[in-house]
């Protein structure tokens, strides 16, 4: 902060000093006590252990559509699916190889925006401000309706990402 030394005392609006410049600083954190699910011990931003286990076995039975998470990153499932898609489809006879790949990319881009069931692994916050994967907590609440971290009665405050 720099203080203006040249004060015109004859002026009626007398000020002992004036602010010439200032730099604002801000800090931010997630509004959660911790970013890992204490039940499955994975990051809350990722899918829970159960959903990941289901996803790894999933493609053999019924292949899920490509998934883009809300954070915007393409998941592994989506990458696998893109590879599967590209191999069997024959290139249009009239087009050159370069135009084929660009049309493929367009198809992949449009389909990856569609929502899917495996993208529904969300986070749940309790009144006690502890957070878990909704899937993990749903399993535990069936057994014991209290927060595993603080033992308070479990009441859902918010569900989402």
């Amino acid at each position: 902060m720099e203080v203006d030394q040249s004060i015109d005392e004859k002026k009626s609006d007398y000020r002992p000093f004036s602010l010439k410049r200032w730099n604002a600083c801000a800090v931010w954190t997630w509004d959660v006590e911790c970013d890992t699910c204490a039940i499955c011990r994975l990051q809350l931003m990722e899918e829970c252990l159960r959903c990941q286990a289901d996803a790894t076995k999933g493609p053999e039975r019924d292949p899920p559509p490509p998934v883009v998470t809300k954070a915007g990153r393409v998941t592994r499932v989506a990458n696998n699916h893109l590879i599967i898609n590209e191999t069997p489809s024959p290139p249009p006879p009239s087009s050159t190889p370069s135009s084929t790949s660009s049309s493929m990319a367009a198809t992949a881009g449009s389909s990856s925006t569609s929502p899917s069931a495996s993208g529904e692994c969300v986070v749940v916050w309790g009144d006690c401000s502890h957070s878990f994967h909704n899937c993990c907590m749903a399993q535990w609440v069936k057994q014991n309706a209290r927060c595993p971290l603080c033992q308070q009665d479990w009441a859902v405050a918010r569900v989402g990402k």
């Binding site: 011990r41 159960r50 286990a53 289901d54 076995k57």
Partner: peptide, 9 residues
């Protein structure tokens, strides 16, 4: 699925 979870944990 349960066994898979248990092994990972």
């Amino acid at each position: 699925t349960r066994i898979c979870i248990r092994e990972k944990l």
